[in-house]
Nucleic acid binder design. Sequence first.
DNA 1: ATCTAATCGAGACGGTACGTCGCGTCTTGTT
DNA 2: AACAAGACGCGACGTACCGTCTCGATTAGAT
Lengths: 195, 195, 195, 195
Amino acid sequence: MNGGRPRDETIDQELQTAALILFAEGGLAAVNFDQVAKRAGASRAALYRRWATREALVTSALQGYRAKAESGFEDWTSRPLGEILDIFVDQTVAAFSDPFARNLLRQLFALSDQEAEIKHLYWSTIVEPRRKAFSLIIRQAQERREIGPDLDPELMQDLLGGALSYRLLAYPGDEHVLDARSYIRAVLHAAGFPI
Amino acid sequence: MNGGRPRDETIDQELQTAALILFAEGGLAAVNFDQVAKRAGASRAALYRRWATREALVTSALQGYRAKAESGFEDWTSRPLGEILDIFVDQTVAAFSDPFARNLLRQLFALSDQEAEIKHLYWSTIVEPRRKAFSLIIRQAQERREIGPDLDPELMQDLLGGALSYRLLAYPGDEHVLDARSYIRAVLHAAGFPI
Amino acid sequence: MNGGRPRDETIDQELQTAALILFAEGGLAAVNFDQVAKRAGASRAALYRRWATREALVTSALQGYRAKAESGFEDWTSRPLGEILDIFVDQTVAAFSDPFARNLLRQLFALSDQEAEIKHLYWSTIVEPRRKAFSLIIRQAQERREIGPDLDPELMQDLLGGALSYRLLAYPGDEHVLDARSYIRAVLHAAGFPI
Amino acid sequence: MNGGRPRDETIDQELQTAALILFAEGGLAAVNFDQVAKRAGASRAALYRRWATREALVTSALQGYRAKAESGFEDWTSRPLGEILDIFVDQTVAAFSDPFARNLLRQLFALSDQEAEIKHLYWSTIVEPRRKAFSLIIRQAQERREIGPDLDPELMQDLLGGALSYRLLAYPGDEHVLDARSYIRAVLHAAGFPI
DNA sequence: ATCTAATCGAGACGGTACGTCGCGTCTTGTT
DNA sequence: AACAAGACGCGACGTACCGTCTCGATTAGAT
């Protein structure tokens, strides 16, 4: 009772790729089902069979994308805080130098509440785990007395992540000369770090 | 020979209001010409006669909105920095408590590069003047030796504005308990301000 | 109580001319008020002030046109019938050789019942007077015993006018080699005229 | 690879029927795509998918209409000419008594050169075959010496068809007392037929 | 080797928004 | 009061995308 032709899994990937490209280029509104199917060389039926809505399609595409390129802080915990922060900021800036990733993140950041499902996915699966790992690093540094105990790690990330996203994503235009490490120095100074 | 029936300016306003509501609710994609005209009780022809594109419509609506509710820092320059910052943050948080303004700013912040015209308008007419006024205040405080001379006012705003927008706009959901003044304390500490 | 600027009567004529040209080119549907006013170098207001509907405009234009070019049979009554008929048919064919008149008459013939007002005008002011004059000629020829008394003049005109309009107007295309005088011979034969 | 959901042929018919009704009522200009789709209970997309232009739609509708109601002269050839003509005229008059057919033919006859495609279709598929069959009948009667050999069958039809269409279609109003058979007598007399 | 059932591409279905154009009415300032 | 200019609401135009559906053809596993 479970016969039938199995799904062609290569089609899944091609559809997701096409959807992600369109999303990065023009946001959710640009994810046109006809276009996605056409670019992937598949039919609209095959697309709708997999995902009922634009959101579900982009959500799935994002998860697939995230699964490929993921870097954590797990193995950094033994390093000194200053070094970790430098690497983190450099990684962030480097990631935003890739136009595709840059646009993709901009679109993700730009998601309105009306696009709740995918927005929630982005935060819960991408942002929050990163923030938790980061908080752990900060607390360990506080335990090692590298920085003062007063500064809330969450607040510290709000300042650092906020400044970076503000400059790199929210600002119009593609090119901003950015001395990103000065954010670190300022935040560390706020945290009582003896520069 | 420059006669003709003059445009009904009440229609301008009603169209702009309707457009702004739709924009705040769902972003540029939700600014539907049929809907705008219908809500304003006008005809699509009257709408197209004024603005050829969605962007031009929303741009104009934003300028009209901004013209009404504008608050500057001009008369604050004599106050102590801590007081000014408190007022600034309180105003920002209060502004974001109004659901309409909150959504409106979220949409503005969320504008992608594809919506370049309106994004540029938002930054050049709303954000940048505010940042310049803010920078002046900081520099005056530095001249009065209230805070140290090392922290770049631009960087300070990136941290403060970034953290606020990050928390208040980018985060999903509408409700965030936010001790906004702690951002100020952190930033002032970073600036060598004796708390 | 009858002050005010008098109407510019040259505008009347230019509007009528423009309307008639458009009518001959494409029928009633092509008589576009914007176009008429533009071609006449006048404003739509001046046009609507004179005629409320398309039909009234074309009706008026036709009356003006007819007033200029009108030829009757009044002075023919003394000639022999054969000669009169030849002249009549030659005139008709010649009139249809002018492309403008040809198209104009075709459009008039093509008027549907929905365009009743102008259709009625055409028949009552152009066709019927001509038919009555023609009937008088036939009856005088019958009294002179040139042709037999049996053939109804109305029927004779139905045959002759019908055949001519059928060939010259209803047929598609612009060019028909037409031996129009053979219609006369046939009709006269039917009327007992000794060819 | 020539799949796809087949077109619903009932929709074709309903669209054609709706188009033909509108055409008979008000000519080509009255064939409104919105109206046609609405009356047929279909969508405009389904309509445009089938016919790109008004002309193509009406052309197709006419062919469908003609396919249903077609009567030829094929089996009449053995009868005497007078009888055939009586039947022909009676059929024509009877056909024009149906208001729908009457209006339809009036619109067809009234087609201007600007509506060339459909006008040509009407003449080539409806009028010309009928004229050719009619000519054959006349020639056979001439061979049987029922009427004289001099009268051109084409000319005979111009007289007969012209008179009928002139009276029944071109005249304004719907009601004309018409002794159609008198046309036959006149034409036969012209053809040397001994009444 | 056949049967079976879910897949595939293709494309039609009713909707709805787009941006344009013509309609007939109206409201200005100017002559 | 006429004039030109042009705005007003209305509604049709032809196109494109939406999400659903209905086809014939494919394709593997279960019989």
